[in-house]
Design a protein around this nucleic acid. Structure first.
Lengths: 345, 345
DNA sequence: TAAACATTTTGAACGATTTCAGATGGGCGC
DNA sequence: GCGCCCATCTGAAATCGTTCAAAATGTTTA
């Protein structure tokens, strides 16, 4: 196996003790210029690299943060992860990544592994964890920030988007264009974000005095395949909806493919809006409307919060701390009046 | 600060020694049923979680793999990272993630940190590291697999795509459609993948007997902004190219936006092909042709290779091991004969 | 009684930091 | 010149939470 060079070797090469070497490397305590030079030379010669695990073991922190997200295929999460990684690296933290595929068992395992690796903090997109798992986490007293989704019971810090408000605004945009029969394709409401968006949709419909047709609401997996299936189902309704609200970008590709396959034109035959903006929405033909959320802001906020918790600079923070990141409604050409109203619109 | 419960506490609670506790937890050596039960009970009571850092320190491995990639914004890398993460988790490894932003200094720092965290192996999308950094890495004897790009000098394992062949095939597809004035928009050739693609393009042109017009070749950053700039420049040439080969998906959005902004129709005014397929290429209007590379295969291959190196099951592997992952040319409606030939095609 | 066996404890690693006690030498008052 | 204090420098030893080899303690069996 591979043999690492440690303080011992360096000390021997520099003809001094490991304590002195440590002092040189950390600029702590007294050390003569002469030995300092000898040590530095030895370090260079031997290509010595301090073992951060041993260091952390002694100092009782790891300078490591665990990030738990469903996957790295959704632009929604990758943009977040990218920004979080960047910010944490700037602060000298290393990122331990785990993806859960939205499965509780994998999530449990990931959480345990990260705790075991002694992370200083956790950033977590939770699924719908059970009480036992939560108790286990609480008992470890690891600073934890939930993002994107919240955990029922609310003992954990959470930074989420304005799901309810954003979904409501999106729905109202469709209503304003004259649509009354609106299809909703979303993710499983066991996750708080999906639930809140769904509720936002329902609320907007209710306020507009439109009885919600259960048939027009489709809740399923956050995957392209689900989008295709749900879109197919909605299109076969009589009459089909004149507008679609797709509640997650992960679902979008399937929806678009299905519409194209049916030869349906946007927005002539059907209007479209999506929760969360993607780069290609803007230069798609037609450009697609979206509830644009700022991943940068969320990343910034969660890193800032987590660091304060870790460093104990959180006397003035509520426990737990909750925050919503605002959105922007980006209206593009994918929304038009419904077909039968087109002449009057 | 937070106080973790260790073997010591568990041993005390179970009224035995830490060694016995350790043996219970690892199912190793002799231990009576009686004490086993007492220990398990204590573990449950105290919510004990073994400290993997201390464990690894003693056992001389960390069950941790470092992944160094430019960023998590490019679907190119995220698909890879997702698959790699999945495979490694299945093998019980944790992933330490670092993004370099393609900057050597950040890369150097990331590499040092990962070495310091005592990773068992490294998966690395290298930029263009200097000799000193490489020597430092070599001296640590950490199993390392470069992916997507290779390192000059070639002492490291590498698994890359068929950049040269793929680029050549893409160019030939355009040539076959009748194009002779083809624009090339690519990334900085200091990275091996960009260099090879560029060479593949040049070779195809040369074999077709077409003198390469330097003006039609644009090499820059792997970013959307660069795509916009380069496309603008190429369009203002007299005459402008009748086809474009975009050598990275990261560049694509800028190119498309620019074409749309100029009111240029694909493929009527200009044909288009891109290296690396993205999901929206298939349902874009028109669908965009691409050199489709299999990230799944690359991920699979690199994890497999790395694990063999780590476990020392690599007697029959060349040193270094090099491999190319094959591609598939996906021709879609974005390619048509050049404008002046359109009637004859 | 010794050998064989099961079970447990002890103590030394692992690779760092940190505390503490000592060594050395200079300055200062007497 | 002597004693004393202080600043500077050093190395031995404890510590972090584990594993592991060896020794110790019982308990049977030959």
């Amino acid at each position: 196996m591979r043999k690492r060079v440690g303080l011992r070797e360096v000390a021997k090469a520099a003809q001094t003790s490991i304590a002195t070497v440590s002092r040189v490397l950390n600029n702590t305590g007294y050390v003569s210029e002469e030995s300092r030079q000898r040590v530095l030379e030895a370090v260079r010669q031997l290509n010595y690299q301090p073992n951060l695990r041993a260091k952390g073991l002694r100092q009782r922190y790891s300078r490591t943060i665990g990030l738990i997200i469903p996957n790295l295929l959704n632009a929604y999460y990758t943009a977040l992860a990218d920004q979080i990684s960047l910010l944490l690296h700037q602060e000298g933290f290393q990122l331990l990544l785990s993806s859960t595929r939205d499965e509780v068992e994998i999530e449990r395992n990931a959480l345990q592994k990260l705790i075991g690796h002694d992370v200083d903090g956790l950033i977590w997109v939770p699924t719908a964890p059970d009480e036992q798992l939560l108790e286990h986490l609480y008992s470890q007293h690891i600073p934890t920030v939930c993002i994107v989704r919240q955990v029922r019971g609310g003992r954990l810090d959470a930074i989420v988007f304005e799901d309810f408000k954003g979904a409501k605004a999106a729905t109202q945009a469709l209503l304003k264009a004259g649509h009354r029969r609106i299809g909703y394709i979303g993710g499983d409401v066991c996750y708080s974000s999906n639930y809140d968006r769904w509720q936002g949709f329902l609320q907007a419909m209710q306020e507009a005095g439109i009885p919600t047709d259960e048939c027009c609401v489709r809740l399923g997996a956050l995957r392209s395949e689900w989008g295709a299936k749900a879109a197919n189902e909605l299109l076969s309704l009589k009459p089909p909806p004149t507008a679609l609200f797709v509640a997650s970008n992960a679902i979008m590709p399937g929806v678009i493919k299905t519409l194209r396959a049916h030869g349906i034109e946007i927005p002539r035959h059907i209007s479209l809006i999506c929760f969360d903006d993607l780069d290609w929405f803007s230069f798609s033909q037609p450009p697609i409307s979206a509830v644009a959320t700022s991943h940068t802001h969320l990343a910034q906020a969660c890193v800032e919060l987590l660091l304060r918790r870790i460093h104990g600079e959180d006397e003035d923070l509520p426990q737990p701390y909750l925050r919503q990141i605002s959105f922007e409604l980006v209206l593009r050409a994918s929304i038009a009046p419904p077909p039968q109203n087109q002449n009057t619109g």
